[in-house]
């Protein structure tokens, strides 16, 4: 018994001493953020991120070589914690969500040619600026859907991207992959948006899209302050959103949508039970 206690205790003591000395002697300066992130991670060393363990992941996130959303076991809390440590969204006090400013799916907007190529918006955009006649509408090939780290984007059967307002964290990854800048980041509490991105004149828009903004100015007349017309395109003024919904019925092309009552046609998303997000996810 004594021998057992002494020998195991002895091994432990020697090991502990050696480690203690080594820790002092071989101390290496590490980025404090790296340690903080390591702390925030689940520490399972599962390798789901494709890197060797949590420390490798923390290192990669800090030096910016990998995107900080790869930790699936940690879920969104971990991602948020990492974002806080890195100060990415420290400035974003109000929660934001992405909006696809287009409703011109295949049934409503015209195409100038038939596209059978690579199912990627950026690839399609390189061929005569994309198959869609509208120069700024959603191409619907799902590049944003694949880029979204939260699975918040779906493509409808008629090829239109729709962002789920509850899953979206406003990270902006989709914005950077969209070749046509259709996706905008807007305050989450604003639910009324003009879903059109075309700065073409009204007559031209009418030619290629049934649901595009024709800059008729009716919305701005109905609810002054709530809408601004700029270069033949109306947009909701997020400073004054209180009565914006009143113009929805008046819009002749129905391109204004209130997300608290429903998502664009063809989407499987249901409007949120709570009218709008109120605090950070």
């Amino acid at each position: 018994m004594l021998a057992a206690v002494l020998s195991i205790g002895g091994i432990g003591f020697i090991a502990a001493t050696a480690l203690g000395i080594a820790a002092k002697k071989f101390a290496v300066e590490v980025d404090p953020r790296e340690l903080a992130i390591l702390e925030a991670l689940p520490g399972a060393n599962c390798g789901a991120c494709g890197l060797p363990g949590c420390s490798g992941y923390a290192k990669g996130v800090v030096d910016g070589s990998i995107y900080p959303t790869l930790c699936t076991p940690g879920g969104s809390e971990t991602i948020q914690a990492i974002a806080n440590i890195l100060g990415i969204e420290a400035a974003a006090v109000e929660p934001k969500v992405g909006i696809v400013a287009c409703q011109g799916d295949n049934s409503k907007a015209a195409n100038k040619y038939r596209y059978l190529g690579l199912q990627d918006c950026n690839a399609a955009q390189k061929l005569a600026d994309g198959p869609k006649t509208c120069p700024s509408g959603c191409l619907g090939l799902g590049s944003c859907e694949r880029a979204c780290p939260f699975g918040a984007i779906e493509m409808t059967a008629e090829n239109l991207a729709v962002i789920n307002r509850e899953k979206c964290t406003g990270c902006g990854k989709c914005v950077s992959v969209c070749p046509r800048q259709v996706i905008k980041i807007a305050p989450a509490e604003a639910t009324v948006h003009v879903l059109c991105n075309s700065h073409d004149k009204g007559a031209l828009v009418r030619k290629y899209c049934q649901i595009g903004c024709i800059a008729c100015n009716i919305c701005a007349k109905t609810v002054p302050d709530a809408y601004v017309i700029d270069k033949f395109l109306a947009s909701a003024n997020y400073e004054h959103i209180e009565n914006a919904a009143a113009a929805i019925e008046k819009c002749p092309t129905k391109c204004i949508r209130d997300f608290s009552t429903g998502y664009p046609e063809g989407s499987s998303f249901l409007p949120p039970t709570i009218p709008a997000k109120t605090k950070a996810a």
Binding site: I11, G12, F26
Partner: peptide, 15 residues
């Protein structure tokens, strides 16, 4: 006990 502390030690020295 031995393996864990040994590996830790080697890691520190390597670093």
């Amino acid at each position: 006990l031995v393996i864990a502390s040994l590996v830790q030690l080697v890691e520190m020295v390597l670093q």
